[in-house]
Design a protein around this nucleic acid. Sequence first.
RNA 1: GGGCGAUUAGCUCAGCGGUAGAGCGCAUCCUUCACACGGAUGAGGUCACUGGUUCGAGACCAGUAUCGCCCACCA
Length: 888
Amino acid sequence: MSDNIDTTEKLEMAKTYDSSLVEGKWYSYWEKKGFFHTEVNKEKQAFSIVMPPPNVTGALHLGHAMDGAIQDILTRFKRMQGYNTLWLPGTDHAGIATQAKVEEQLVKEGTSRKELGREKFIERVWEWKAQYGGRITQQLRRLGASCDWERERFTMDEGCSKSVREAFVDLYHKGLIYRGNYIINWCPKCHTTISDIEVEHVDREGNLYHLRYPVKDSKESLIVATTRPETMLGDTAVAVHPDDERYAHLIGKTLILPLMDREIPIIADDYVDREFGTGAVKITPAHDPNDFEIGLRHHLPQIVVLDKEAKMNENAGKYQGLDRFEARKAVVDDLKAAGVLVKIDPHAHAVGECYRCASVIEPMVSKQWFVKMEPLAKPAIEVVKDGRLQFVPDRFDKIYLGWMENIRDWCISRQLWWGHRIPVWYCEECGAEICSKEDPLTCPTCHTSHLMQDPDVLDTWFSSGLWPFSTLGWPEKTPELKQFYPTSVLVTGRDIIFFWVARMIFLGMEFMNEVPFPKVMIHGLVLDAQGRKMSKSLGNGIDPIEVIEQYGADTLRFMLITGNTPGNDLRFHPERLEATRNFSNKIWNASRYVLMNLEDYEEGPRGELELADRWILSRYASTVEKVTETMENYDLGEAGRLLFEFIWNEFCDWYIELTKPRLYDKEALLARHTAQSVLFEALEGTLRLLHPYMPFLTEEIWQNLPMQGESIMMQTWPEVPAYQDAVAESNMTLLMEAIKAIRNIRAEMKVSPGQKVEIMMLVPDKVQHAVLENGKADILKLAGGASVELFEEMVEKPAQAASAVLEGIEIYLPLKGLMDLDKEIARLEKEISVASLDQEKLEQKLNNSGFTNKAPADVVAKEREKLEGIKARKVALAERLRELKENV
RNA sequence: GGGCGAUUAGCUCAGCGGUAGAGCGCAUCCUUCACACGGAUGAGGUCACUGGUUCGAGACCAGUAUCGCCCACCA
């Protein structure tokens, strides 16, 4: 036990649970005791999860909180089940985001990245990381995350960097990484390329400009339609469909490109859609992905007309220096003046925007590094198809496969400074390209030392794609890698399936020749109350830390996990926080009750179990079984719901109430001890079941129970006890039904709560009779009776009495002078009509020979039984009604 | 242009082949020694629509509508 944490302190018996008083205490206790840490242990089966590394620049948001809660629940669950459990945390260097953050800071200081220079700048980023990078991991601790902080990793730490280097060099030598001039997505604001999935397509209102290009040496002309007239400056052809009769005679002819006075050919290509626009497309190979492809097919020149700022460059003639949107206006004006502009139609189309800064992306031909995807995608597709890797829920299989099957090469070079530098050097003397794990000193070809490293860094996702094994020591064959790879399950949001999950799968297959995880548990997004994504620009974000401070981490966790189904988005409703907090408080108070009555508890054999004891133990056993099963199936919401129901509706509402007479009777030693013992067992076991969901609350309570052991989190997961007792469950149901019926009459007849009434019950069935006879005391207490009298038969039924008719049982509350007879008559009539409806439906069903012939025999028998019950009940009700009417 | 998800009580969501459920909200009552962040009782649903499969369908199939989200090179 740690010096500054006193866990022997007696439970503060406050009526309301105050999470803020206990959460910090327990977290540092767990961490100091080393409960989160795992060593390799070949004797035990492993369970491992790698945490999706949040950006170092980030602050915890509700998405992280949900993601973390799920992983922590699974981790705590498996740890208690006895697995050698590792939840490996870490953060991501997040190239663009981090660089931008530090650049912002530099601007405030009146300097800039360029002024500082590359080396100094990177130093500054590391300083920044040292200072602020721990925020998000501290926040994860607030959530209760039981990850192994001793193994915390960072995508740019030494080990991960070594993995990145290894992976790059290996892929390079296999020919799976190449450099070349291709069309890429350029962000003019971030000044870097971004990959295809980092481009967000947004529908925008724009125009379709129709331009007339004159045919050389002819009076004819060709009208093309374009949404981006300024790119005409880089046109190197116009394409028409090969079978388009309108233009067949023009194919092979030459056009004069207006404004530029350049000659460009008319070519034929299948790509052209005859229906769209005029059926003639201007081709700008350097600035459009399709045009680029067409350009390759027809060997067209590529004329880049934009620079890195998306301003027109020297190839744009007099437009040089204009921003692309200014250039558009200028070009359109000039085209209009030249009589080339035929018309402008409004036209909505998708514009690519930078996922980060929302600038319009410029497709551009540029020399970049790419990962060749086809060979890597193949095994990554197979493992999902043959089930070696499964998405939970499985509908995400299709989404993943659809993407993987249509994947294009991955542009991995970024024009940033913060990130993993591309391990390629160019010889300034002979032009040789050297890719190596060790920094080369001389050129292997010409042996000079004039080498220059490629200035670019790698896409952040390249390093996170190696995360499941780079964090375990790869490329070294470490014991950790051996025990914990493949990891057991990956938990992440559906928004990064392509960015991250897919990359881990194909990189895992390539380097480990094994899936990185057999299961991927995909959860939805946390939306605001209106169902919108939470975002900075909308200002609708909720800070999980504020929620934790107000309601407690347990409440936040439970709320985020329950109330929806796996894979679906969750709307954030503050009212649900209150409801969940009330649940925490309910558990707290139920435990208070148990603890208050456990002061003199000593272990020892129980006396005879009462019905309620057998019932709650049976219900507890069934809860252990179902909770375990649903958790094994990753259905955490359902398991949470089961716990909620058991704790509140069964343990609190019924069992606790039923133990009171025994607990408050200090004379009945054995009976009291028995109740104590059962209460204790059910509560303690339930706390263990609940611990993964509500680690702090359960620890606080558990530490106050007369238990040996350092922490609930290190206890074993409950086995299903052999307490199942169908008889007890059905007898208890009968008793509860009777009590509820009496309560109902009292409420309906407006009998004041203080008013004790005589209760008479007609119970001909011997078994039922015995059950209710034994339950007399409970009925008195829970239904507010002055006396309970049971009859096997009743010659004369009480006249002025309200009644309830259950199946086989009639209950009478003589309320002479207290009741409104008309009201009671009306009540009975209503019940009879409801019963008649039920009877009618059942009879219809049973008269249907299709049903009786084809439905399973037990279903038919059950329906018959039901009908008999209803009939008998109806007879009793009618009888009762008749008697009452006679008395009016 | 494809794909996915949602459509069930006023609200938020479970249920996924055998007579509709929870939480919140609402109504009435209750400050009894676990809890008013509570207890008791109750009201409230032709399970979006149309067909089909089945003895039987919120539940399975086909389609329609509305909303949301992904993906996509029609300039």
